[in-house]
Nucleic acid binder design. Sequence first.
DNA 1: CATGAATGAGGCTTCATTCAT
DNA 2: TATGAATGAAGCCTCATTCAT
Lengths: 216, 216, 216, 216
Amino acid sequence: MSQNKKISKKVNSSRDPKNTKLKILNAARREFADKGLNGARVDAIALRSGVNKQLLYYYFGDKEKLYTAVLEAAYIKLREKEKRLHLEKLDPMQAMEVLVGFTFDYLAENRQFVALLNDENIHRARHIKKSKVVRGLHSKLQVMLSQILQRGAQEGVFRRDVDPVEFFISMTALGYFYFSNGHTLSHIFGRNFTGRAEREARREHVLEFVSAYLRN
Amino acid sequence: MSQNKKISKKVNSSRDPKNTKLKILNAARREFADKGLNGARVDAIALRSGVNKQLLYYYFGDKEKLYTAVLEAAYIKLREKEKRLHLEKLDPMQAMEVLVGFTFDYLAENRQFVALLNDENIHRARHIKKSKVVRGLHSKLQVMLSQILQRGAQEGVFRRDVDPVEFFISMTALGYFYFSNGHTLSHIFGRNFTGRAEREARREHVLEFVSAYLRN
Amino acid sequence: MSQNKKISKKVNSSRDPKNTKLKILNAARREFADKGLNGARVDAIALRSGVNKQLLYYYFGDKEKLYTAVLEAAYIKLREKEKRLHLEKLDPMQAMEVLVGFTFDYLAENRQFVALLNDENIHRARHIKKSKVVRGLHSKLQVMLSQILQRGAQEGVFRRDVDPVEFFISMTALGYFYFSNGHTLSHIFGRNFTGRAEREARREHVLEFVSAYLRN
Amino acid sequence: MSQNKKISKKVNSSRDPKNTKLKILNAARREFADKGLNGARVDAIALRSGVNKQLLYYYFGDKEKLYTAVLEAAYIKLREKEKRLHLEKLDPMQAMEVLVGFTFDYLAENRQFVALLNDENIHRARHIKKSKVVRGLHSKLQVMLSQILQRGAQEGVFRRDVDPVEFFISMTALGYFYFSNGHTLSHIFGRNFTGRAEREARREHVLEFVSAYLRN
DNA sequence: CATGAATGAGGCTTCATTCAT
DNA sequence: TATGAATGAAGCCTCATTCAT
């Protein structure tokens, strides 16, 4: 075993499958986000999770299936949290501001999610395409979004020609790209985009950018 | 021996170093864009370029240096082309429309560039950080952009509070994210984003999105 | 978890040790015959037998001991059945014809036995050497065979110089090799040796081959 | 590298591909004959051949392809040697005696060939079925055999009803089974079949067994 | 008796890189 | 400059076996 001995070897005598699976998933998410599918090391995931390497195979089959499980869980977590915003109860403009803000903040605080998606796209979404759950999550999202836009249009606060999906992509893009490409952006512009203040400024910019488009 | 035989073996009897290097770079760009740094195979690059594997090492040192060379060349190519737009000669609003359209089209037609950037960001821009050329390219870009925005503001067609870098990021994000994350987006929304018509619609949306923000 | 789901999981709620052991032995015989000692999987045996893997260890100690048990049982079964031919009650020529026919048929119908022996010989009979039962079985066989040959010689129907063991080996060989090496033979001769008609023809051939040698 | 250090590490700086391939094939033949496909260790083959393990993959692709190459080479070697007997130049009875003797001796001296075939049959001839060369070798053999039998029948020294393939199988079986199953036979009969004298006796027995059948 | 969870050892293979010509 | 041959390191995965209930 070539396991890095810097971290002392733990033994998983928990006999608590649910918890064991969770520990694996968490460790895997970190490793995959950090290194990508190809760069990630199964050994490293085992080490991080404090679980015997073979348990990964016992529970998840192989590296790619584990990766798929991580991705799916990540999508579910995001959309669950989003659902809890209860946007349908807010007035349209407020709902949009909350949604845009939430999206930005979520990506800011879950860089691993961003990194995972980046990597999955390098693999042409090969893994997530196997998931039906994920598709379901987004059809609901789409419906909700359409309703808000419609209500806004009817109330005269939103422009009338907004395609919900295009809009959703744009709104997400403004935050996503900032975080996903932060490293290259920081370098090419010689400006650090990782700080607290910068991020706050970006948030304002995004909110303003989106509102400018939406408002009638 | 175990080389993938799908790509038929070429022999490089050119004895033309410049051309040989170029063939390597082109093959490498395709391979890296396709598979990422970790997924790319030196053997595959050699095969694609029709050049003996050892020559890659002779000319570029190792895989990562080759990757860096590919990245740098990609940035240079984009900014060169951008420079040739001569935005400074156009009136502000027109200049912006040209720039936004150009950016969108460039990303659309150079998916490999998008893929490379995605991958490089997974590696925290480790490679491009070594490049000083790239930094230089963008400081010029920044200056030019500021001037246009200023002119536009003075002429009263643009709002006055636009941060050039934030704006540049936003403008790019709207196209970039659409292409970089096309695979996952297509799946989660059950909608194909790769077609010609879809792309044209997106282009319009982006132009409108940006103008809405800019205009006074 | 990664168990082959083609075979549906059974649960062993029998609480009937004897029956459980038998189920294991049967499943093990199939698996070992199919894949050989090295190719066989303990998991597969457990699955096939519908018995928890741990029970294999409980009853048989380890994989090799289980293999040994299978082999021994196979030999016993053959010789038991052979004994029931009561060759000593037949006249010599008839006895031989019955024996040769029986041997051929038994091998034909018990390919697993043939496969097991093949595999055991690859392991230099390491396992069966531990069995004293098997040795005993064959000393009786040898005695019986000698008597028949002697009686035949005295009656003038058999040649007088027949070594019982050599003869036994030859008689067995003619059927055994046909079955044990059927796959390679079929290929190299471009002829299918697995069909009913082919087998019947072979049986005739073997009977004739042996008689030609025996008769005075 | 977990290579067995009992044998000191050799370096293959020969740069003689033909020889290197041969060394690998020879070592592989020994290991596969010794342990079977599943029991054989790629590491052991590398060690035995004094060649870097990865060269096996460079030249042969993977373990199974190497196994296939070994099998094919073994068949070719046998049939080549057989051809050199020039049986067609001998009179029928002599030809058969030479053939039977040769076959017996070849198997006696090439136990590895016997072991390989045994193992290949456990795998249902999966590997050799890929070889067209082998098939070709045996169609020629069949023709030659038919001619001898025909000539013998015409000359009145052989019986007329001999099926060449059945006969070939029988003739081979008498020696093959003796060697392939020597270990179990030795044990069950409590008699050592590996000695020089025993083998000579067996050879005589086989020759007599076959002649008895053939002669008119 | 019976079972799901857990583990250590080791096997096959890949791959970037270097050697020798 | 160009090339086929060779190598060390490491990665993914399998499997017999044992633990704990």
